[in-house]
Computed example of a mutant assay.
Amino acid sequence: MLGPLPAAPATPPDMQDRFSNGPDPDLWVDGYLPQWTTPDRAQARYGRHSDGLLLRIDEDQPDWRPADAPLRVSNLQTGSFSGPLGSTRGTHRHRPDGLRVETEVPLRLLWAPAAGRVDIEVSASRDLDCMLAAWLVGTEHRSARDCGEVCIFEIDARAAGETWTARTGVKAHHDDRLTTRMIETALPFDAGSPHVWTAIWGDGETIIGCDGEIVQRLPQAPDYPLFLMIDLFEIGPPRGTYPKTAMVHSVRGWGRSARVSRG
């Protein structure tokens, strides 16, 4: 760890959810990048719990896209955007071989700051082949170039007694103003229990931390609107016991517009 995180803003968060009644529909789209697939394949599976929201992968859950199989996802994201049916316009064009809009979705900017801070309390999955992740991704509704990503964490499931690790950093994707910089950090705790992950970004810097300590500091940051995504993936063919789960306990965020526009 690289020292203590900056304190959270003294002002109340402009986005907050403890999931006591499930995902707030004024804040979340409960599907994974729905423009690139069909509604039944994008739809998240989840259940309410006294400690938060239990993201699930169920035994009968379809693959996100047949072309990506085997891959199943339950995801929440703070907005949506796509171009017209059949186009290549849409949020998070993460595949190098291209994606085309299969389901046209409206522009919904439910929480899409260009700079700010977000704190996410989660318990990662302990289930076979699963990964819990949280990303801030460029909405791309103003420009396809606005597609960079702040990877707050990607945590692969671990069996009892194994060391947990997290991947964090910035991914440029198709944004030539950014440089992909990812690291993998050994975690000195059991990530299957509750921990608070933080991203602070803006003014040319990104800070990623956990439980009040800095994990990574980068001298770059996207400066355009970003959606928050929280995802539970099952990567590989179905096996083991179901449902496979991870817990999202709470999310709170403070957003602002970017101060500097880069060319």
Rank of each mutant, 00 (worst) to 15 (best):
L85N: 10
H94C: 09
R89K: 15
L76P: 06
D58L: 13
R93P: 01
P84Q: 02
R65T: 06
T91A: 13
L71I: 10
P96L: 04
R100D: 12
P84R: 00
D97G: 02
W64F: 09
A67H: 12
P84C: 03
G83Q: 04
W64N: 01
G79Y: 03
A69Q: 09
F81M: 08
D58H: 13
G79P: 04
V73K: 06
H92C: 14
A67D: 15
P84M: 00
T91M: 06
R72L: 02
P66E: 12
R89F: 12
P70C: 07
D58E: 15
G90D: 05
S80G: 05
S87L: 05
H94L: 14
G83H: 05
T78V: 07
N75L: 09
P70D: 10
R72A: 07
S82G: 03
S82R: 00
R93T: 15
G90I: 05
F81W: 11
H92T: 05
G98C: 05
P62C: 07
E59R: 15
D63V: 06
P62E: 01
D68K: 02
G98N: 01
S82I: 03
S82D: 00
R100S: 14
R65C: 08
L99M: 10
A67L: 11
S87T: 05
P70Q: 06
L71Y: 10
G83N: 00
S87C: 01
H92R: 14
L85D: 01
G98V: 15
D58W: 00
S74M: 01
L76R: 02
R100Q: 15
S74A: 09
G90R: 05
R95Q: 10
T88Q: 11
W64T: 08
R95S: 12
G98F: 11
L85F: 10
R95A: 06
P96Y: 04
D60P: 01
H92M: 08
Q77Y: 02
R89A: 02
S74D: 14
V73A: 02
T78W: 06
L76I: 07
Q61R: 04
P96M: 12
L99A: 03
Q77W: 11
P84E: 06
Q77M: 15
A69I: 04
L85Y: 01
T78S: 10
S80K: 01
G79M: 13
S82L: 10
S87V: 07
L85R: 11
A69F: 00
S82N: 03
T88C: 05
D63R: 02
S87Y: 06
S74L: 11
R93S: 10
